[in-house]
């Protein structure tokens, strides 16, 4: 073969060019920002048994038939503070709606810090302390905080959002829960 080196050089060049093209073409798309980021989507929601600060217990099985929004958060994460007004607004609007329940579960925080934050920020919805929270955060395969899930009345996870909730995503979540009865 004449000048095999030339062919080797061009072959290497072709590989590099292909790699560059793959990169360039795929740089534009960003599938990150949507609801369906959790692998648990469509699966039945893992049960959990948590305690609230007033001593009452919260079990997912007891909430069957209702749409449940589970919000993993803690007192020291910035995006959690960012989404707080959204949660508070939503709770005010749906306080009397019995078919929807919101539950805050601490992720990587101490009970004391959670209780202080919940009190200071007037989080009126059900907030669990850290007993049993750790196994719930693992069971739901959470990847950070804040992360929220919506569980249909039949007990299936039908939506998830990693990152702070917005009014738009909040409505989407509730809709998803109510549609998938």
């Amino acid at each position: 073969m004449k000048h095999p080196l030339r062919w080797v050089a061009l072959a290497v060049g072709a590989v590099v060019a292909i790699f560059a093209v793959i990169l360039a073409v795929n740089v534009g798309t960003d599938p990150r920002a949507d609801l369906n980021t959790s692998r648990l989507l469509g699966k039945s929601a893992p049960d959990f048994s948590l305690a609230r600060f007033d001593g009452t217990k919260v079990r997912l099985a007891d909430l069957a038939g209702k749409t449940v929004i589970v919000n993993f958060w803690n007192s020291w994460c910035r995006p959690c503070r960012e989404e707080l007004p959204v949660l508070q607004q939503w709770y005010r609007e749906h306080r009397t709606d019995d078919s929807v329940v919101m539950l805050g579960i601490p992720r990587d925080d101490s009970s004391r810090a959670i209780r202080d934050a919940a009190r200071a920020d007037q989080m009126e919805w059900a907030v669990a302390n850290d007993q049993g929270a750790k196994s719930a955060t693992l069971a739901y395969a959470t990847r950070g905080q804040p992360e929220s899930f919506v569980i249909s009345p039949r007990g299936r996870i039908v939506g998830s959002v990693l990152g702070p909730l917005t009014p738009g995503t909040m409505d989407q979540m509730v809709q998803a829960g109510q549609q998938n009865a």
Partner: peptide
């Protein structure tokens, strides 16, 4: 470990890693 930058669950000191080791 999901809360880390590529560390394994064995090496990480985060709460989620500790929980995973327990699990």
């Amino acid at each position: 470990c999901v809360d880390c930058e590529g560390l394994s669950v064995a090496e990480s000191a985060t709460a989620s890693a500790a929980e995973q080791r327990r699990d």
